[in-house]
Design a protein around this nucleic acid. Sequence first.
DNA 1: TGGCCGAACTCAAGCGCTTTAGTAGATCGT
DNA 2: ACGATCTACTAAAGCGCTTGAGTTCGGCCA
Lengths: 348, 348
Amino acid sequence: MSGKRSPARRPTMKDIARRAGVSESAVSFALNGRPGVSQVTRDRVRRVAEQLGWRPSTAARALSGEGAATVGFVLARPAHTLGVDSFFLQLVSGIQEVLAERHLGLLFQVAENVADECAVYRRWWAEHRVDGVLVVDPRADDPRPDLLDELGLPAVVIGGAPDERHPGLSTVWADDAGAMASVVDELTALGHRRIVHIAGLPGLAHTQRRIRTLRAEAERRGLAEVQSVTTDYSDSEAAAVTRRVLQGATPPTALVYDNDVMAVAGVAAASELGVSVPADLSVVAWEDSALCRIVKPWLSALSRDSVEFGSTAARELLALLDGGPARTVQVPVPRLIERDSTGPVRAG
Amino acid sequence: MSGKRSPARRPTMKDIARRAGVSESAVSFALNGRPGVSQVTRDRVRRVAEQLGWRPSTAARALSGEGAATVGFVLARPAHTLGVDSFFLQLVSGIQEVLAERHLGLLFQVAENVADECAVYRRWWAEHRVDGVLVVDPRADDPRPDLLDELGLPAVVIGGAPDERHPGLSTVWADDAGAMASVVDELTALGHRRIVHIAGLPGLAHTQRRIRTLRAEAERRGLAEVQSVTTDYSDSEAAAVTRRVLQGATPPTALVYDNDVMAVAGVAAASELGVSVPADLSVVAWEDSALCRIVKPWLSALSRDSVEFGSTAARELLALLDGGPARTVQVPVPRLIERDSTGPVRAG
DNA sequence: TGGCCGAACTCAAGCGCTTTAGTAGATCGT
DNA sequence: ACGATCTACTAAAGCGCTTGAGTTCGGCCA
């Protein structure tokens, strides 16, 4: 008296062939829209296939030369910085939107560091698991492009700078430099001349781009007291750095945080020191999210569409898989949304 | 003059066989630890394999009866509620930790709703893509267990109640009832008698368990003014509900929110109405995260180890894949961490 | 010395699909 | 009326791996 029903059997092309009274090859041609079968046969085969709920076995497909119908995505960040910012889930959701249309799977993996990430790529490649990958968090001195080149694995780098040394890789990027410039514009217009940028991980390419741009913009405007400080993106480091700079000899009047969580933590740290936002201090968060609108004061933030970012990247990867050329595409520049955390610098 | 280097070729067992001077079958036996080869041959084969950087093609493996070496994970939530809470990324990170040990892949997909999720399972099953799945957000009237039963797809339900109607499914769950009871205990000990529970999606099984427990606990204690209100987990609904209940005739003195984001939004909404936390109102967040410690006042929260939750679930799935029996395992009861958002009810 | 056994291998089929080469049968031009 | 050309199909090989059914060979017992 076992409760187990016999599990359903997976239909194969052979089943379809039998029911439709044709050979397996005919079925293959019919189902893949290849010439060699009449319209009536094609329709009949399709009907039978649908009726049986047939779907091609990815394993068999992959084995006979087609791709694995899967793309890979590795996230290499310290585990404790994972859950906090909303960027990645949104990005992935955008990626899926595009992949789903083609019934491509997304193989997801978290890794400890870039070396492990490379190992994952090697394994995926050797195991024939993915047709291409999406690479995030490009670094200043990044081993991944070389590796992917060597493996011949199609890839799109998300958030990287255009990279002419790797003509095989596509790049989808946002103009951090332009965004940073617009922030500095706005802050100097409000009278701020002492600005500290609380940046993210020092090794990331976009962190360095932001830092470089900030320095250049400061020089261009003759602002001497402008600096960047790198962190691990955590709320605790952000709070610590905020306290340190605010207690310095000439404290900044404006802070730019590289993500939303750090900005919130920074505002809290500031108010503990009796520094109020925006009266004494202006704060900008680089990355908008619900978070920016649920704390008081509402945070001014650089907003971009992360979902769109993801789908753009996915589309580029599809183009690459279809044999198209590698391209570099730019998503819209993040826009500064002014809310309640930025204001004119206090007189005096 | 193309810049393309010839991409590396994937080594196969045939290559190993040739280099080691044995047949392919011998290689298979050697590499899979099966009897039929001498120790010296085994070692030689292994050495060659390693040297060549060989990894079994998952496609070929899957095709010859082995599994797909992949487990599936579908997230069916409205897109806009995706990025906000930190639970899922942590869960996934815990899952990976366990899967990685066995080199199992995680196929990840976001879906619009449960019907789509079911379609994804059907497709994965028909495409032979996954060996098993992890199911989250179990519902009151859930079509998924029946479907997975029918397909014979091993599965672990995360966060469900023990389910004797589906003996094939494993369940990993947290004792919401116990946790809710402990919250009510604590709040009544502080003198609160009017409590509102701002719950999550009404269809979810754990939402209903929490609501039922709250009602039972209230009756047991003779508290008349206790209720639950369901939401979509968003900060905006949380704020709206908070405003509504606080402006009622007999406003509650304590609020319990089903996630961290809603709790933060609720505190903000309250303070806009001039209701201060914890003096006028106590707040508890069901789900702890960095968020609870970066807003002021720090939020008292029910804390559980989501990473551990994920790895427990993954371990259960592995056990199932190994042919073990379905089990129901319970993770530790979420513990109430008291911070600054809870306090004694104001006299009068 | 012959017969038997187990250890160490090899052979070949098969998993579900794609694809190349090949074969009937209809159609056409002359 | 005959070969040439097409169309609509079938046969079979091959992708990389597993596996059950042989095959060879040295050693052991009687």
